[in-house]
Nucleic acid binder design. Structure first.
Length: 671
DNA sequence: TGGGGTGATATTTTT
DNA sequence: TATCACCCCA
């Protein structure tokens, strides 16, 4: 398939900074990947001087894959396709000395940093009403806005803000002391480095001579700054985004960054991709009509060449149970009539809790589904355990890893021993690991406890030595054996099946390590581990499980960037789709964009569902149809009411419903 | 150490 | 109303 004229223009334009406004389904990834190959093949750019930046591991993987399809891997060797955070990490690894980090620095995940905040506010029990999660969130917001603790303290007008900035200050001090960074630092530290160090800045500007950024409307302040610093005055970059798909302002994204570019780079060229290759005319018209209710800095007229398509359905159900039931039954009907596969359907909703009831009915009808947004692979205990061992192996000073691992599996080192060890380490201002071998420890601890600790320390030292010399992966496997981890898994699981699943996860982790070790020429364990900490294997697992045919179940947020032939959006009600708090905070526009994102996921058919009554926080409440439904073109929407109580008794209806489902199932399976 | 009882809490989430 | 984190006790 050929590129259309604006796509073509965007992929060959290299005379200066370029902003591509890419409407939903307009083929932006194709433009980016084509442009990368164009830069390498036609414009003489070395692959290793090009960086394409995305937000998620998933999209960066996808982009890598698509580049691979376009040019031989030899030609793209050295090309950077990574997330913002990966790019930041790469820079930090190379420049850690300049920002006061030892090369062994570790990355705290959100759980770790939350624990750290919790620890920090423990000393202020009076202020504990604002709990750790919220404070962590605010610290993160400040960091995304590039506000230093000092600035935050100076700006704080409220007592609570002042408190938060004080915690922020201490938080940063502790990170420094731990030789650790959090996710936000992966962007922020490189930004500060490039701002303050001309040599380093020029070095990176010369290394990365062309930048491409995807989903630009999702960049926050620090990411904007990073791109700007890397691009420099030369301004050789292409950014792609869509202001109508900005749905992450609540976590610091600044969609106005799109237009800010025009100010910062007067030479900015703007190209719009307005042909949609995804949705039927009716679906696209609905999306356009809806989003026209938002103010626009950039006008855009998305059009489609595809068929008119079937009417969009809006189904009013009795209550939330009924809504889920109708949704599943309509899906089943549709599937039967169109002989389609489960994987052609997606059910989208505003909040994760809405998934539960859908799951219930999907299970009842034995429809397999894929729920996105479960516990991430790295949040699983077994993975966290092994990761902590690995982190400790790389950096024995990593206290949080030490604490997690010291008595897992059990080593008969109890809380009181650890408490004393920790006190001692604090007084000597050294790491927990270092404290094990201090002479003074014998005064506070029983000899038995000391010998247990040293036994652990000796083991770790030996393993660490072996790892430096011998085969990395073999040593990791040896470690898992040494600690009898399979046995521990069995003890921790109710069923042998679960223990097995845990060990499979451990194995998956090691396999990832192996792969990384082999193909990304990361020869040291520490490189592998720090990279691994940034990769979400869950996504990978999902993809692998994808080949069986399942209905997709996900939030509207999670659906961005995806497409499905048939889409159901449930909970089209006031206080849910414009969410209640968004109504209160007067941020309807982002909610409208969220609805827009949902609608534009659909290729062929689109169905809205709503419940006339809904259980919210245990209370049955009347609900009003979402205002967004009123904003859609009337002629394209077909309204219907379902689940009206008939003369039949509740029992009878229930039975008929089940019979109906059973019939459908029989038709489908007994085909 | 794990289970049970209790109380708070109820958007969206990636790295 | 349902879930979850947290705490305490055996």
């Amino acid at each position: 398939m050929e590129l259309n004229p604006p796509q073509q223009e965007a992929s060959v334009y290299i005379d200066g900074p370029l902003l591509v406004i890419a409407g939903a389904g307009s083929g932006k990834t194709r433009v980016i990947t084509t442009k990368i190959t164009h830069l390498i093949k036609e414009c003489g750019y070395a692959a290793n001087s090009i960086a394409a930046v995305t937000f998620t591991n998933k999209s960066s993987r996808e982009m890598k894959e698509r580049v691979r399809q376009l040019i031989p891997s030899k030609a793209s060797r050295g090309l950077t396709v990574s997330t913002f955070h990966h790019l930041g990490l790469t820079m930090l690894r190379k420049e850690c000395k300049s920002v006061g980090l030892k090369s062994t620095f570790t990355i705290l995940d959100s759980q770790d940093s939350c624990d750290l905040v919790k620890e920090l506010i423990r000393d202020y029990p009076l202020e504990a009403d604002t709990e750790a999660k919220k404070i962590q969130w605010k610290i993160s917001s400040l960091k995304n806005d590039m506000i230093t603790p000092e600035q935050a303290m100076a700006n704080a007008s409220l007592e609570s803000d002042y408190f938060i900035s004080k915690v922020y200050h201490r938080y940063q001090e502790h990170l420094q002391a731990y030789n650790a960074v959090d996710f936000d630092d992966l962007i922020l530290k490189p930004v500060h480095l490039l701002q303050n160090n001309v040599d380093v800045r020029e070095k990176w500007q010369n290394k990365l001579r062309y930048l491409l950024v995807d989903e630009y409307q999702d960049t926050n302040m620090s990411q904007y700054e990073l791109v700007k610093l890397l691009a420099g005055v030369r301004g050789q970059f292409t950014v792609v985004g869509d202001d109508d798909q900005s749905i992450y302002a609540w976590r610091g994204a600044r969609p106005e960054n799109l237009m800010r570019l025009a100010t910062d780079y007067p030479a900015l060229k703007i190209i719009k991709l307005e042909q949609n290759y995804r949705s039927s005319k009716k679906i696209l018209r609905s999306a356009n009509t809806l989003i026209a209710n938002n103010p626009h800095a950039i006008t855009k007229n998305l059009w489609s060449d595809l068929a008119e398509g079937p009417a969009i359905q809006a189904v009013v159900c009795q209550n939330d149970e009924d809504e889920a039931k109708q949704c599943v039954s309509m899906l089943l009907h549709h599937k039967f009539n169109n002989r389609s596969k489960n994987s052609e359907y997606a059910i989208l909703y505003r909040g994760n809790h809405q998934a539960r009831i859908l799951e219930k009915y999907l299970r009842e009808s034995s429809i397999p589904y894929l729920l996105s947004g479960g516990t991430s692979f790295f949040a699983k205990t077994e993975v966290k355990d092994i990761m902590s061992y690995l982190r400790l192996l790389v950096n024995p000073e990593d206290d949080s890893a030490f604490l997690r691992v010291i008595n897992t599996p059990r080593r008969e080192i109890g809380t009181s021993t650890i408490q004393k060890l920790s006190n001692y380490a604090t007084s000597r201002n050294c790491s927990l690991f270092a404290a094990i071998y201090e002479f003074g420890l014998e005064q506070t601890l029983k000899p038995k406890a000391v010998s247990k600790l040293r036994q652990f320390g000796d083991w770790l030292n030996l393993l660490s030595d072996n790892t430096k010399r011998g085969d990395l992966i073999a040593n990791v496997r040896q470690m898992v054996r040494d600690i009898d981890y399979p046995l521990w898994c069995e003890e921790q699981s109710e069923t042998p099946r679960k223990a097995e699943a845990k060990m499979e996860n451990v194995d998956e982790l090691i396999q990832w390590l192996t792969r990384m070790h082999e193909d990304q020429d990361k020869d040291t364990l520490e490189d592998c581990i720090s990279h691994l900490a940034l990769v979400d294997i869950l996504e990978k697992q999902n993809e692998e499980e994808d080949d069986d045919d399942r209905v997709y179940l996900m939030t509207l947020h999670a659906s961005k960037g995806l497409e499905f032939p048939h889409v159901f959006i449930v909970g089209m009600e006031e206080e849910i789709l414009p969410h209640r708090s968004s109504i209160e905070e007067d941020s309807i526009e982002e909610e409208r964009r969220l609805a827009y994102v949902g609608i534009t996921r659909a290729q062929k058919s689109l169905t809205f569902l709503m419940a006339a009554r809904r259980r919210i926080a245990g209370e049955l409440r009347e609900s009003t149809p979402s205002r967004f439904l009123d904003e859609l073109p009337k002629d394209d929407i077909e309204w219907m009411e379902k689940g009206k109580p008939s003369q039949l008794s509740e029992e009878e209806r229930k039975k008929r419903g089940q019979d109906h489902l059973a019939n459908l199932k029989a038709m489908l399976t007994g085909d």
